[in-house]
Write a protein that binds this DNA or RNA. Structure first.
Length: 305
DNA sequence: GCATGTCAAGTTGTG
DNA sequence: CACAACTTGACATGC
């Protein structure tokens, strides 16, 4: 069913050369200001960031890039305990909503696939209640943005193992079951390069109907006995069952495969690192490379797509 | 202007 | 035990 389909490539969060920038602000800077000025600064940054996101989608659609990962701090410090805020607190909320609408329209027009990838401190397998609560708060924020921009995916890692994978998976299962639908319906789990391999995650994902995002670079850094072909086949099968397009991650090692740690990402993707078994599939491949849009475009050219 | 240290958050592995 | 690494970049500060 997915053979000879259309593969789309995804750009992650930011640009290397293209003059599209996202702004940030720290909690420390905000805390020096009275609340009204905090909200003015935040409103300005959020509005500029949604404009930049719109420009990002214009850029990718013009270049034939079919997917885009939205950066987590699009609305900086949204869930911070002291300086956090809501969209309705921002003076320019109407303008911000107007750009959300423009973003949804360009997304629909070009059928762009949008995703979120919450940072490493979002952990649903932690034994600490506080960590789970903070994670859910952050995921609710990202789900709100996902709803506003029309994003389909919130992709998470499985967290730590705490020396006992089975118990960690039990906590993960329970916490996933309790998630609000806005998060749960978008949730995917990705294999990492420290703890959780495809062999660990696939049975879990199959049991609970969660798409597994297959990062082949992580798999090469932390192998598990499964071949890339086997993992790909299982992921495609699971996604078919769930009615979702498979999502893969690709990167190349900065210092080569045999020169120290292969984990750091290179500027570009070596086409030799692109798995043969992915070719011809209907799937999204997010490109994790430091040269960002240049790397995505080069890979597309190198692969002739 | 430019260089440098800092930034909310978790977990693991290395030195 | 401290610290870097992870999608690292962008901001704030000080020269």
């Amino acid at each position: 069913m997915y053979n000879n389909g259309k593969m789309r490539f995804g750009l992650c969060c930011i640009f290397r050369k293209e003059p599209i920038h996202f702004r940030q602000i720290t909690a420390k800077t905000l805390q020096k200001l009275p609340r009204s000025e905090q909200l003015l600064r935040l409103s300005d940054i959020c509005l500029q960031n949604v404009k930049s996101l719109y420009k990002s989608l214009q850029f990718v659609s013009e270049k034939g890039i079919g997917a885009f990962r939205v950066l987590s701090p699009l609305f900086p410090r949204y869930t911070h305990p002291d300086v956090g805020y809501q969209l309705t607190d921002l003076p320019e909320k109407a303008e911000i909503r107007y750009f959300f609408e423009k973003i949804r329209k360009i997304r629909d027009l070009h059928d762009l696939r949008l995703s979120f990838h919450p940072d490493q401190f979002n952990v649903l397998s932690s034994p600490r209640k506080e960590v789970i609560l903070n994670t859910i708060r952050e995921l609710e924020y990202q789900a709100m943005l996902a709803e506003e921009v029309g994003a389909e995916i919130i992709n998470l890692h499985a967290g730590g193992t705490y020396g006992h994978k089975k118990n960690a998976l039990k906590r993960l299962e329970k916490n996933i079951k309790d998630l609000p639908i806005s998060i749960r319906s978008r949730l995917t789990l990705e294999n990492d390069d420290v703890s959780w391999t495809p062999a660990d995650l696939l049975p879990f994902c199959e049991s609970y109907y969660i798409p597994m995002v297959y990062d082949v670079h992580h798999h090469r850094c932390l192998p598990d006995g499964l071949s890339e072909t086997e993992v790909t086949r299982k992921v495609v099968k699971l996604c078919e069952k769930l009615g979702k397009e498979p999502l893969f991650h690709i990167s190349s090692p900065k210092n080569g495969w045999h020169n120290g740690s292969p984990k750091p990402h290179a500027d570009y993707i070596d086409p030799a690192d692109f798995p043969e078994c992915w070719k011809g599939l209907t799937a999204t491949v997010e490109v994790e490379a430091k040269s960002k849009e240049l790397a995505v475009l080069k890979l597309m050219k190198d692969l002739g797509s």
